[in-house]
Design a protein around this nucleic acid. Sequence first.
DNA 1: CACGTCACCTGCGTGC
DNA 2: TGCACGCAGGTGACGT
Length: 276
Amino acid sequence: MPELPEVETIVRKLRPDLVGKTITNAKLLWPRTLASPSPKLFKRQIRGQKIEKVSRRAKYLDIKLSDFHLFIHLRMSGDLYIKENKAPLEKHDRLILEFGSIHTTEKKDGSKLVFNDTRKFGRVWLVRDANDVIGGLGPEPLSKTYTAEKLYADLQSRHRQLKPLLLDQSFLAGMGNIYTDEALHIARLHPLTSSDSVNRKHAKLLFDAIQEVLQEGIRRNGASIDWVYRGGEFQNYFRVYGRDGKPCPNCGTVIIRLVVGQRATHICPNCQVKGS
DNA sequence: CACGTCACCTGCGTGC
DNA sequence: TGCACGCAGGTGACGT
């Protein structure tokens, strides 16, 4: 489920409940959820850590602790909840962080952060140096320092199909399958077009489209589809994603589904003409 | 370097 | 009803 707007939505929701909390205990229910360090070290290091800041980098939640960064990536099916400490374990809960005061043994009135992840693809890191996890990421698309001219130059520097390139997190960090299809449609670019054949004018259109879909996604609290419901509503405003067989909102042509780089891809064959 | 394939997982919808 | 199959918002390790 989670691309940049969904993660941003989760961060905004969790932040007020997390900042200032002290982690008193960690329960790891599916060991592979933890990317690093070892479960033993993780439990020892995280105990007593206070949450100072909750933010996002691309699709990663970045929870700044007293001495570490706790990074969480939800991958395909991860989700995060704040619950009462006494709330029962649910199916697919993978990691629990309990809060309370480290100075007393009283824990029962505390709350907890629950990482639930059906497909077990999600990962958690506890590191001192943030770059160990997010160091390889490309630019943050909504950052003030990311510009159309930068995108144009980056596109020119590569010779790759547009869609796989936009999904490459080292090229641009935060786009996923939905928002990429939506942005390419708005910019009227075909997903197989070679990046270095995109001219400056079209790069600007693509840049604006990326800004637009990400901001709209955030404004609508992300997209909720399938059996994972998050309360977002962007799914009701998709232009092409998952709309194969339905009319293009621009021209009425039937939207088609193709596969690009192993990913379902949706385009209007009239608006998005394959270039070189 | 670009691209294809598979692996990692569970659950849901569809069609026989 | 059962069952096989295809599909899913992501990424990383390979091989060519």
